[in-house]
Computed example of a mutant assay.
Amino acid sequence: MDKKAEGQLRVIREVVAALQAAEIPAWLFGGWGLDARIGRITREHGDVEFWVERIHAERSKALLVAAGATALPTQPPEESCEYTWDDVSFSTAYFDRQSNGSFSQPLGRFSDWLFPPGSFGAEPVTLDGRPVLAMSVAGMLAMKEQFPSLRNGRPWRQKDLTDMEILRGLAK
């Protein structure tokens, strides 16, 4: 494992510990979320991404900053917050629970994004020998599949296509 992955895993542990202490769940998604679902590192990652329920947005930000992260003013605050922690980039994006059991990000650029029921479960998976929450396979697949058709989406990258193939295999 290279130094970048070691730093990212350390930040994942620090974020999870800081938020768990306050009983705020945070779900990995993106490349690290997929790796958590698989149980091993599959590739190099540019950053670490977590979902946090919007009702915990401000409190999670305050807790992470108090624990040592630096919040960056780079994202619309109703959508997410980007951070650095010892030169490791990570972010928390915010979702809302819907009355029908699904989830969405109704505020901001991706208000047309919808996630199926069960996307944010309570069962941890294991990453680097430690329990973490990760967005469900169905949730990550829905997220990837919808992205190009979103109002502010963009075309799939090769890694998105590869991730979708892996997620479809996990969904079987």
Rank of each mutant, 00 (worst) to 15 (best):
V11N: 01
L141T: 02
F120H: 03
Q98A: 02
R37T: 01
S149C: 15
I41L: 08
E23H: 14
G139L: 07
R40N: 00
L19D: 03
Q20N: 15
T92V: 04
P124K: 07
R59F: 12
R10C: 02
E145M: 07
L9M: 04
G7I: 02
A26R: 07
A18R: 11
D35H: 01
L167R: 08
A138Y: 08
F29D: 10
L141I: 06
A142Y: 04
K159E: 06
P77G: 04
T70S: 09
K3H: 13
D47W: 14
M143K: 12
Q20P: 08
K144V: 00
Q98T: 01
L167F: 07
E79G: 08
A17I: 09
M1V: 03
W51D: 13
A93S: 14
F120P: 01
L133V: 15
H45I: 13
Y94M: 06
F115A: 04
A71K: 02
A66K: 15
A171Y: 09
M135N: 14
P117T: 03
H45E: 14
A36T: 00
R109E: 09
M143F: 12
P131V: 06
D86G: 10
I55Q: 13
T162K: 14
P117S: 03
E44C: 13
P77Q: 07
F110T: 00
A134K: 15
F95W: 09
Q105W: 03
E123Q: 14
R97A: 11
W32E: 07
R97T: 09
S119M: 05
G30I: 12
S136W: 12
G101Y: 01
V52R: 07
G121H: 03
V88A: 09
V52Y: 06
S102K: 00
E165I: 05
A57T: 05
D160V: 05
D112H: 02
S111N: 11
L167P: 05
E58W: 15
R154N: 14
A71C: 02
F50S: 11
